[in-house]
């Protein structure tokens, strides 16, 4: 699995035909098994990039390729910024929805259950989303993306609304699932420490629409103690400085 974006541009147009060129001549590559974070100030176009890769938005110029083929809808597992669990479906029905939509995708109820067990939601299998806390809902939304069965997962600020402790737990199991299933993850976050801790590489999107590709030189597997390692702290400071001088 390789994802390549070549000279991609995208412009939003509103009813008054005003144009807002959000993505301009963007080049990036995500290789098989990579964990890549996408960071940048609010409004730089991170969510837009994810929507382009899902195929929900169509680029005006350039190419988006998975394994050399132009992407189409249904190629990736996508977890949007809001959890968007359907309120009338139970948790297990919510996480299995992709298997109802894609006929070639076979997921048994038992498999779905074992995943719920993995993330501590088995007791809520038949609960409605409204009965769950924010953290639980995020986990369910993640499983829904995971159970699309796609190799590439696009996660838009999955842990954005969580408290620090819950977030740490979620990061740990996200890494373990990623490694176990050999998934490729493109991950948007505002939390620089989180980006450093999770990723192999960090893509920093600037307001001037340029992109920095920054490697993270931390060994795998990652442990929470690594948060205090010099390498990580220095990198975090470095990123902070690079972003801080940008103004909207």
């Amino acid at each position: 699995m390789t994802l390549v974006l070549k000279n991609v541009s995208y412009t939003f147009r509103n009813e008054a035909n005003q144009k807002n060129k959000v993505i301009s001549d963007l080049n990036m590559e995500v290789r098989n098994g990579d964990f890549v974070s996408l960071i940048g100030k609010s409004g730089t176009g991170k969510s837009t990039i994810l929507k382009l890769i899902t195929g929900l938005l169509k680029q005006d110029e350039g190419e988006i390729l998975i394994n050399g083929k132009a992407i189409t809808l249904g190629d990736v597992g996508y977890m949007p910024q809001r959890d968007l669990l359907l309120p009338w479906r139970t948790i297990i029905e919510n996480i299995m929805i992709a298997s109802e939509i894609q006929k070639d995708l076979q997921i048994t109820k038992d498999e779905a259950r074992s995943w719920l067990d993995r993330v501590g939601l088995l007791a809520y299998e038949n609960a409605l989303p409204d009965q769950l806390s924010g953290g639980m809902r995020q986990r369910a939304a993640f499983l829904r993306a995971l159970l699309t069965g796609k190799d590439l997962l696009l996660l838009d600020e999955p842990f954005g609304a969580l408290d620090a402790l819950t977030k740490k737990d979620m990061q740990t199991w996200l890494l373990s699932i990623w490694q176990e299933l050999n998934k490729t993850i493109l991950f948007i976050t505002h939390d620089l420490e989180e980006a450093c801790f999770l990723s192999d590489r960090i893509l920093l999107l600037h307001l001037d629409k340029t992109l920095d590709d920054i490697p993270v030189n931390l060994s795998r597997p990652r442990h929470p103690e690594m948060l205090h390692e010099m390498e990580l702290i220095t990198l975090r400071h470095n990123l902070e400085k690079r972003i801080a001088h940008e103004t909207n």
């Binding site: 929507k51 195929g55 929900l56 809808l73 809001r82 359907l86 009338w88 929805i97 939509i101």
Partner: peptide, 24 residues
């Protein structure tokens, strides 16, 4: 719109969006 996009991202057809989202 966001719910529709979520289902479309999974490759849902207009008919399955109608059944799984619009009707409920």
């Amino acid at each position: 719109k966001e719910y529709i996009e979520l289902l479309r991202s999974m490759g849902a057809t207009r008919m399955s969006i109608f059944k799984k989202l619009n009707i409920p």
